[in-house]
Amino acid sequence: MRSSRSSPDKRTETGEGRTMLAVQFLRAYNFFYFSLLAVFISFLPVYLTFRGVSPAQIGVLIGMGSFVGILSQPLWGMVSDRYKTIKKIVLLTLGISVAVGFALFQSVHPAALFLLVGAMYLFMLPTDPLTESLNYRVAEQHGLSFGAIRTFGAIGYASASLIVGFAVDRLGMERLSWVYGVYGLLAFAFCLAVPDAPASGKRLSFADLRRFFAYPATLRFFLLVLVAAIPHRTNDSFLGVFVQSLGGTSGMVGQAWFVAAISEVAFFALSAWLLRTGSEIKWITLAAGLYAVRYALCAVAADPIWVVYLQVMQGITFAVFYTATIQYLYRIIPEEWKATGQTVLAVLFFGVSGIVGSIAGGWLFQHLGGSALYLGMAGVSLAGCLYSLTLWPRGTAST
């Protein structure tokens, strides 16, 4: 009798222990996945420069990759919704990304670089929105905030940026593939242990998706995301090249990304508190305005170390902006299309904006210089800030 009374408590403790272990595995996966993403995003332009690719050509390569991402992200998001699993799709896209990325960072021939960059965007880019969807839904299932999990991704991105920058300075750019491979294998291993996202019980309906995109508020919101994301993605593509153009080293490129990512940690941790009132559009407005200030100050920086220091604004710009957009999107989108909606957001944020930002940014960088590029980015961010003011009356509108 005594053991029978205690067994429910033991089962409860065991269940809580498994839940906590699953969340810890998800946090570890975020740490290593975003470390892997840091190697790809932060150092791909630097690697291409090392291989003799010009800024304009880098812009075309990354723009081409973003176009591939536009095609691939909705596909993988809809596959995830159709089969009601996020984890299995992440394992597939992540595993291929690790193999392709390892080959990319060993490649020298321009044709091979072109093909491998395209393949990376075909598989690596869709992994990001699926990972964010996995984070959001598992956190929701276990009563945690999105930031409580995503913070570990920011820590991973920060630490990898710093480590890889100094490692490349000491070991040479030729060893970048091995660094990428180690992070990739660790991310894949921890992904195997994370729980899958809870599946929606609702039947998928293309009519529901069409109605969702027919809402004027949704279209206005996605336009705001696109305008604000263009300068952000341009910075992703050319921050390292800009730092080096001012006389900075690969180590300083790593420091810049470290400062940017570590600043995200605090704001991802605070995101649940900051956004508790539901005023996402107001926070997006603030972030867009600070984006403009950040890029304008970069444009007038004469020393690369000031560009490094200015990346501390990444937290209030990207972390707050991105968390607010996800929270707003999940509040207005139909339940059965959340993974697809997250993917559409990523298509705009990392796809369409990446094409415009990379190609136009590469042309501006090559013909007018880095300072002119960052001044233009500040202007676009300011336009996004002003446009977001028109959405304030509808900021809490629901579909």
Rank of each mutant, 00 (worst) to 15 (best):
M1E: 05
D9I: 15
R11N: 08
T12M: 09
E13N: 05
E16G: 01
E16R: 11
G17W: 02
Q24I: 01
F25T: 10
F34R: 02
S35N: 08
L37W: 10
I41T: 15
Q57G: 06
G65K: 03
V68G: 04
Q73A: 02
I86L: 08
I89N: 11
T93N: 12
G101A: 09
A111N: 00
A111Q: 02
A112M: 12
F114Q: 01
L116I: 05
L116Q: 10
G118N: 07
M120H: 05
M120I: 04
L122H: 00
P126W: 01
D128I: 08
T131I: 00
N135D: 15
V138G: 02
A148Q: 15
T151G: 02
V164E: 12
G165I: 04
F166Y: 04
L176N: 06
W178M: 12
L185F: 13
L185N: 04
A189P: 05
L192K: 11
A193P: 00
P198N: 04
P198R: 02
L204E: 10
F206A: 09
A207S: 13
R210K: 09
A214Y: 06
A228R: 00
F238A: 07
L239E: 14
T249D: 14
G254M: 04
G254S: 09
A256V: 02
I262Q: 08
F267A: 07
L275K: 01
G278N: 03
K282A: 10
A288M: 11
G289I: 06
G289C: 06
L290F: 10
L297F: 06
V307R: 08
V308H: 12
V312Y: 00
Q314D: 09
V320D: 02
L329P: 11
E335H: 05
E336L: 02
G341Q: 12
F350E: 10
A360K: 05
W363F: 14
W363L: 10
F365N: 00
H367Y: 13
G369V: 09
G369D: 10
Y374E: 03
G376M: 00
V380Q: 02
V380W: 03
A383I: 05
G384R: 05
L386S: 12
Y387N: 06
